[in-house]
Amino acid sequence: MAIETATKTLTMVQAVREAMLEEMRLDDTVCILGEDVGPRGGVFLCTEGLYAEFGPDRVIDTPLSEAGILGGALGMAMNGLRPIAEIQFIDFLFPGYDQLYSEIAKIRYRSAGMFKAPMVIRGPYGGGVRGGVYHSQSPEELFAHIPGLKVVVPSNPYDAKGLLISAIRDEDPVVFLEPKRIYRGVKNEVPEGAYTVPIGKAKVVREGSDATLISYGAMLHVALEAADRLAAEGKNVEVIDLRSLVPYDGETILTSVKKTGHAVVVVEAPKLGSFANEISAYIAEKAIEYLEGPIIRVASIDTSVPYNLEKYYLPDADRIVKATKKTLEF
């Protein structure tokens, strides 16, 4: 029997907002704090209308201080609340990075489980919006490397809502990175009400047998564009949306790579030390005997993000096609 679930066509901004709205209605310990999240509704409108519904105790406009927001949210989480700390741009998180690195991520371990930090750190990240050096970065590996944190990156509104609800309900701190390049450009059908997409499960978004493209966030769409072009040339590639970086879904990656024998990992961060390295090393350790060509990383170049020459900085479909052909022709 088919169950009718009402859906709406939403953008990622709207999906993020709905996730918070649903959870705040269901659980009165959920609250939001950050800069301009109150009557302004957030600079991208992710918290639009929430202040009006829940008031200043649950939608908290803070002074301009990421250390205060992150450290304050930690204390709130330790004392019975489930705070969502909005960072206006992830590039601006770094005044509070020490709170994330030394305090939020370590409180459970250093206290042997006596204290915990069930909280979400969320905000827009990534390039492609002409944001220049400080409104464009993809520093996900700087979060993924910290034991104690989970890291999630949605690529579409449906996943964004379901993953954010999972993150809010998680017992551990979750860094939730929203690719702002697709904040409004990618829409899909999103169910009404609360539902979850599990953290740690990747999704095969396009099946294929010749090579595996592994990506997440905004780059997933560039990888899909490359897959279309490769298909036009008769090369049938599988595309995996990682969705969670910590924990990541090794099983789905290995199943695909063992089938195709070729892996290309596409990330938006600069290549050196990027999360593509973790995935590449994992494949090499676990499945090298299945590989018929080198694992290739497609990433941004190892510079800061330029305002005016961004198209040369970010990976595009051309680079992904070229990389895939390189491993296929090995």
Binding site: C31, D57, R58, I60, A67, G68, L70, G71, G72, A73, L74, G75, M76, A77, M78, N79, G80, L81, P83, D98, Q99, S102, E103, K106, I107, R110, S111, A112, M114, F115
Partner: peptide, 28 residues
């Protein structure tokens, strides 16, 4: 709270705990 060794780092969380006490009306 089992402390961190990083000087000054715990103070924001102490304030967060106090803010939560106000919000939850726990009297802490």
């Amino acid at each position: 709270v089992t402390p961190s060794s990083v000087v000054g780092n715990k103070t924001p969380a102490a304030v967060g705990v106090a803010m939560a006490a106000t919000i939850r009306k726990s009297g802490q």
